[in-house]
Computed example of a mutant assay.
Amino acid sequence: MPHAPGPVSRALREAPPDQLVEAADRAVRSALDASRTDVFIADYRISGLWPVLDPELPDAGFLACHTVAQRCFSSQQPVADTDERGRCRLYLPLTVWGERLGVMLIELDRTPDAGTVERAADIAGDLAVALRAADRETDRYRRVRRRERLTMAAEMQWDLLPGRSVAQAAFLLAGQLEPAYTVGGDHFDWSVDGDRLTVTVLNGAGSGLAASLLTAVSVNAMRNARRSGGSLTEQAELASDTIFYQHRGARHVPTLLLELDTRTGRARAVDAGSPHLLRLRAGAVDRIELEQQLPLGMFAEIRYAAQEFEVAPGDRLFVVSDGVYAAEPAGREAYGGRAMARAMRSTRLQPATEAVGTVMRELHAYHADVDLRDDAVVVCLDWRGSAGHDGGWQR
């Protein structure tokens, strides 16, 4: 069915940032003759999806929606749920550049044909772009996203993040911070520029607001060098000098800097401290051994060297902070000893966006679901190969 999504896009552009969901509701009712819509947004821990238009939805109705919405969110595919009277609930992923925001619900009095589903998916795509842009102008959607109050340190960390996932034909990248509502200094950052993907993971020093401030200085120094055309080593060196001349060696930040040529799979890395780099290939998890150099900010004028290694199509790379690798709850062996590798192997058939959650859930289970004693970061990168698919390789 030929269609022109112009009217819906126009309605979203003209709507105030805090009224995007209402504007989409009106536009979808008109364009698709829908009886109801809603938007579900993923919370900070990606443990649930929460309604925006109807936050007081009765529990039974919410749970019925939530189960199917979660399936749509996980699969990133439209999911239709039709009742015995032929009424259909159509769930569509709200995703922009690989960043999973949530799910859009559209209720119809009929089973939609392929053209209607395609048109609805276009509308959901337009809404996802608008929602991401609106986050700079309104707090409404962030309020839905948080299920409890953030600490000041966590507020700063989440605002500093580039997102929680990003995708192109050649790769899928995702990351997660825990404990989501109280995280202090652990952090990740990334940037996509042509065929170059840059990823940094910081094992934040200290706790609370002081840790988040140190991380913010480190991340922005590396961004400053990167945005000025600086190499991976220059990014590390500017951040290190900035931290040292502010704290004179009393504070430092273990950091892993990684750069991947998404065309060839050639990777370069600077291991400035403790984050661990692991590879899942053919069902086996192996640590990629790098020369461990001094953490950022330990001494003045530190010079760093980058190492190179190859990534094969279908490879999955994990970067984890010490809060994951070295976690030793209740006197047990470190999570990174054996349990972490088992968790990583169990993600073999999951996309990177689901894999980070699996590793984190297993970490919580390893702690017997008590609060984590240290910040934890998991970043997962799948390189599909220059053709943009994994060609059937098994991890």
Results as ranks from 00 to 15, higher is better:
residue 207 S to H: 15
residue 167 A to D: 03
residue 348 R to A: 15
residue 13 R to E: 15
residue 217 V to S: 09
residue 316 R to Q: 06
residue 382 D to A: 06
residue 289 E to Y: 09
residue 69 A to S: 09
residue 167 A to W: 00
residue 269 A to R: 06
residue 176 Q to H: 08
residue 325 Y to W: 14
residue 218 S to K: 12
residue 96 V to Q: 13
residue 313 P to N: 02
residue 89 R to M: 13
residue 256 L to V: 12
residue 176 Q to M: 08
residue 28 V to D: 03
residue 184 G to E: 06
residue 367 H to K: 09
residue 169 A to L: 04
residue 28 V to N: 04
residue 300 A to I: 06
residue 114 A to K: 06
residue 382 D to S: 09
residue 85 R to C: 01
residue 161 L to H: 07
residue 360 M to N: 06
residue 374 D to R: 13
residue 42 A to R: 03
residue 359 V to R: 00
residue 291 E to Q: 08
residue 82 T to L: 01
residue 76 Q to N: 13
residue 150 L to C: 03
residue 201 V to W: 05
residue 106 I to D: 01
residue 68 V to R: 01
residue 213 L to H: 13
residue 139 D to G: 01
residue 305 A to P: 07
residue 328 E to R: 15
residue 165 S to H: 08
residue 194 G to Y: 08
residue 269 A to Y: 04
residue 234 E to N: 11
residue 319 V to S: 01
residue 316 R to N: 07
residue 354 E to Q: 15
residue 325 Y to R: 14
residue 36 R to V: 03
residue 104 M to H: 05
residue 92 L to V: 02
residue 25 D to G: 06
residue 233 T to S: 12
residue 207 S to D: 09
residue 267 A to L: 02
residue 149 R to C: 05
residue 245 Y to A: 12
residue 304 Y to Q: 04
residue 282 A to E: 15
residue 150 L to D: 02
residue 339 A to C: 10
residue 148 E to P: 03
residue 390 D to R: 10
residue 141 Y to G: 04
residue 40 F to M: 00
residue 285 V to W: 02
residue 305 A to S: 13
residue 200 T to R: 07
residue 9 S to D: 13
residue 352 A to R: 11
residue 51 P to M: 02
residue 5 P to G: 11
residue 176 Q to C: 03
residue 309 F to A: 10
residue 237 E to F: 05
residue 42 A to N: 05
residue 332 R to K: 15
residue 42 A to W: 00
residue 41 I to C: 06
residue 331 G to R: 11
residue 251 R to I: 05
residue 163 G to F: 04
residue 213 L to I: 15
residue 141 Y to A: 12
residue 227 R to D: 13
residue 29 R to A: 01
residue 72 C to E: 07
residue 222 M to H: 01
residue 241 D to Y: 06
residue 123 I to N: 02
residue 390 D to C: 09
residue 266 R to D: 11
residue 151 T to V: 14
residue 281 R to Y: 06
residue 236 A to E: 02
residue 138 T to E: 05
residue 71 R to I: 02
residue 18 D to G: 01
residue 243 I to D: 01
residue 139 D to A: 00
residue 60 A to P: 03
residue 17 P to T: 01
residue 267 A to N: 02
residue 307 Q to R: 02
residue 265 G to C: 00
residue 380 C to F: 02
residue 250 A to Y: 14
residue 179 P to I: 03
residue 252 H to D: 13
residue 298 M to N: 09
residue 33 D to E: 13
residue 109 D to Q: 08
residue 225 A to D: 10
residue 253 V to S: 05
residue 179 P to F: 02
residue 327 A to H: 09
residue 117 V to F: 03
residue 212 S to Y: 05
residue 357 G to E: 05
residue 115 G to M: 02
residue 27 A to V: 02
residue 333 E to T: 14
residue 336 G to A: 06
residue 120 A to H: 04
residue 319 V to T: 11
residue 165 S to D: 12
residue 369 D to A: 07
residue 157 Q to C: 08
residue 329 P to W: 08
residue 338 R to F: 11
residue 142 R to M: 02
